[in-house]
Design a protein around this nucleic acid. Structure first.
Length: 703
RNA sequence: GGUUCCAUAGCUCAACUGGAUAGAGCAACUGCCUUCUAAGCAGUAGGUUGAUGGUUCGAGUCCAUCUGGAAUCACCA
């Protein structure tokens, strides 16, 4: 029985014997550092029931624990309600003794449940970027954690290898590629395809300009009636916004005259530039966001913000119009044609598609290998996009779906989920993304009989997943209750959101190379790898670089959006991957040195008291399984990252304060202490390695 | 406009689900390498948890309103 359950049971017993009170749940929390003790029982909620003052109840419970258990060595009552309990050193030592011999520690009992983690799920029209890295690291880590928590895990990847976006790259390649290949160009396959995707966008922009000009002149001959109404709607919105802008701008001169002088020179310059052009200015906006202002200055700031926001809204509406115009370009027509050919299995189109996808897969495989993630099951949308049509019939039979007069099929959705029903079959009989996902969900279950299915998808698809899960639930799918959307936040850059069109995307391959280079420089500066072969060194740079990168992306709560600054985010110091790795390396170094000195590293010890840092270490070591369980339950690797860091930091303090090998002063006690500390180091190293392993981070033997 | 999420130290993030004096790292400043790896250790400084009310023994956490930010709401994928 663990210390914790011993205490909990004893406390329940105490309430029963002393007050005849049945207490169902006793929660203990770690004692804060500034107080004596390790476990704290919060008594507030029980004070009324037993009609005691905190110090009285504390004393009664404390005495009871001391007398009726053999683990408690003392207690104190603090801040009128906190009972801090101290555990005897001997108990800590014995518990660690058991732990040290348990090689299975950290592997939780088998749960006999199969769970699928779908992650990565890339498009085959451009290379992986920073956002994908967060996804991949998260998915892989969650899979490792669930496995440690006792599940059977299937790692799945659903590749989006068909559709309009793929045809864009294909068409551009066909037109401008001149037979270029990854071999002939020396460009990695996925990057080569990405190049043509960008090229398509460029060419289409050229074609769309005259169409936009026509719209501006109210020439609508190209468009259907419906499109014209939509465009008119957008134009009306823009007109309204413009009017608002005029209203707001009218207030500008007065405020400016009153307040501008109170701002610093930088601001005044930016303001003047902005006022002269009066458009959306991301520079100015960023400056304002990062600056603090006095209460007096706020009115002007608020007005500026308002105007900038309005310009931003115009840009959005403009984008909508552009979207419609895009579809009228000759290039887009060709794309649609190509997609139809592909769906009709036209040999030439399919051959091109296969060739280009092949290049992308080679590229992806290289990246996956480089970042250390893998999959047990690949799904391809080209094979799954027709799935889900059987479900339509099922839904119609169950009266969950209905058909509109034009032939389109819709799913009814409850008000809590969505105000609108969801279309599943277009009036022309083709299916949409949702239909396909429904079918794929069935397929996953048929293939693997999974009881849980985790979708690692960005939070911009919250709505999509909510609707998907609701429909599956309504359809009474047996796996419906096990569906979970692991919704993670976007990765922001200091310059704002990543946008491929503005060239602000951080490419995964490039980033990895840069981090490796940083790792190389730092490592070489420290000079600890002198005398190793180049191959050995490169391997260590790789491990450190990936450790740094994965740790920065995983230490943050997945649900939250996070900021990634290339210059400063990938830390090597402090709360960072390499710091944790370094402490593993220290434990290994201790063992190596011990062997050199001819000291056996695997012997029983006899110590009877503990140094503070020894006790802190043992406390942490005992928490590992609970952390795995919790991280698995919440699908949250950041708990593991936090734990790994705590363990490393505690070891680092222990390492600085407590001599290990130098312990020996010839006395028997010192030799026992040395054996004990070596065992502590060994176990700590083991658990650091395991914890980092759950994050997909490797450890070097030296660094 | 509707819905959902977010706001904590100069910066990046925590806070065991309502508990004690809100904690780490980075950046700044002070010490510590002739002894087990200094990518380190010890210390100083840094906070009206966006604002205002409320709920109670107790609120960063729950509720209401406001301010600011993000995502989403397609016969796109």
């Amino acid at each position: 029985m663990s210390m914790e359950t011993t205490l909990q049971n004893a406390l329940q017993q105490a309430f029963k014997e002393l007050f005849n009170l049945e207490v169902t749940e006793v929660e203990l929390q770690p004692t804060r550092k500034e107080f004596e003790g390790s476990h704290t029982f919060v008594m507030f909620s029980f004070l009324k029931a037993v009609r005691k003052r905190p110090d009285e109840l504390g004393q009664m419970l404390g005495d009871y624990l001391t007398q009726n258990t053999n683990v408690v060595s003392g207690y104190n009552v603090a801040n009128k309600g906190f009972l801090n309990i101290s555990i005897a050193d001997k108990v800590w030592i014995d518990t660690f003794g058991n732990l040290a011999q348990n090689n299975e520690y950290g592997k939780l009992p088998h749960k006999n449940q199969k769970v699928m983690v779908e992650y990565s799920s890339p498009n085959t029209n451009k290379p992986l970027h920073l956002g994908h890295l967060r996804n991949n690291f998260l998915g892989y880590s969650v899979a490792q954690i669930l496995e440690a928590a006792g599940y059977d895990v299937v790692k799945a990847n659903l590749v989006n290898d068909r559709g309009v976006h793929i045809c864009k790259s294909m068409l551009a390649y066909q037109k401008f590629g001149e037979g270029e290949t990854p071999e002939s160009s020396g460009i990695k396959g996925d990057h080569l395809i990405g190049k043509y995707y960008v090229e398509f966008d460029k060419q289409m922009k050229k074609q769309v300009t005259p169409i936009i000009a026509k719209i501006a002149k109210n020439e609508f001959s190209l468009f259907t009636d419906e499109e014209v109404t939509n465009i008119r709607n957008y134009q009306n919105k823009i007109a309204k916004i413009n009017e608002e802008i005029r209203n707001e701008q009218a207030k500008l001169p007065a405020l400016k005259g009153q307040l501008l002088a109170s701002f610093d020179a930088d601001f005044q310059e930016l303001f003047t530039n902005w006022e002269a052009s009066l458009t959306y200015s991301s520079d100015f906006k960023k400056y304002i966001d990062n600056q603090s202002f006095t209460k007096k200055q706020q009115p002007l700031i608020k007005l500026i913000r308002r105007i900038i926001k309005l310009y931003n809204s115009i840009a959005k509406e403009d984008g909508n119009i552009k979207q419609i115009a895009n579809n009228k370009t000759p290039l887009m027509n060709e794309v649609v044609e190509m997609l139809q050919k592909w769906e009709a299995k036209d040999p030439e189109t399919v051959a091109l598609w296969q060739k280009m996808n092949g290049w992308v897969y080679e590229g992806f495989d290289a990246t996956y290998k480089a970042i250390g993630v893998d999959f047990d099951q690949m799904y391809y949308e080209s094979e799954t996009y027709l799935l889900g049509k059987d479900i339509i019939k099922d839904g119609l039979d169950k009266d969950l779906f209905y058909t509109k007069p034009d032939g389109s099929v819709w799913a009814k959705l409850p008000k809590e989920v969505s105000d609108n029903d969801k279309i599943l079959l277009r009036s022309n009989g083709t299916s949409v993304y949702m239909t396909q996902d429904l079918g794929t969900a069935d397929k996953k279950y048929e293939d693997h009989a999974i009881s849980k299915s985790i979708y690692v998808i960005g939070n911009e698809q919250d709505y999509h997943c909510k609707v998907l899960f609701q429909i599956l639930k309504d359809l009474d799918r047996p796996y419906a209750d096990g569906l979970y959307h692991l919704s993670y936040g976007m990765v922001d850059l200091p310059t704002g959101k990543m946008k491929s069109r503005e060239g602000t995307v951080i490419d995964a391959d490039d980033l990895l190379e840069e981090v490796k280079e940083t790792a190389r420089k730092r490592t070489d500066d420290l000079g600890k790898l002198d005398g190793m072969s180049d191959a050995e060194k490169i391997e260590i740079y790789r491990i450190i670089a990936l450790g740094a990168l994965k740790y920065t992306l995983l230490r943050v709560d997945p649900k939250k959006r996070m900021l990634f600054d290339k210059e400063s985010s990938v830390d090597f110091q402090g709360d960072a991957g390499p710091f944790v790795q370094m402490n593993y390396v220290r434990t290994r170094s201790i063992l190596r040195k011990a062997a050199e000195m001819g000291i056996s590293t695997n012997e029983p010890w006899a110590v009877s008291d503990l140094h503070v840092m020894e006790k802190e270490l043992i406390k942490l070591l005992l928490q590992y399984e609970a952390v795995v369980e919790e991280a698995g339950y919440e699908y949250n690797p950041s708990f593991v990252a936090q734990y790994a860091y705590d363990l490393a930091r505690t070891y680092s303090q222990f390492f600085a304060e407590c001599p290990i090998l130098k312990m020996d002063d010839g006395s028997a006690a010192s030799i026992e202490r040395r054996k004990f500390r070596i065992a502590l180091s060994t176990k700590t190293g083991e658990l650091i390695k395991k914890a980092l392993g759950l994050l997909g981070i490797e450890v070097p033997e030296r660094m």
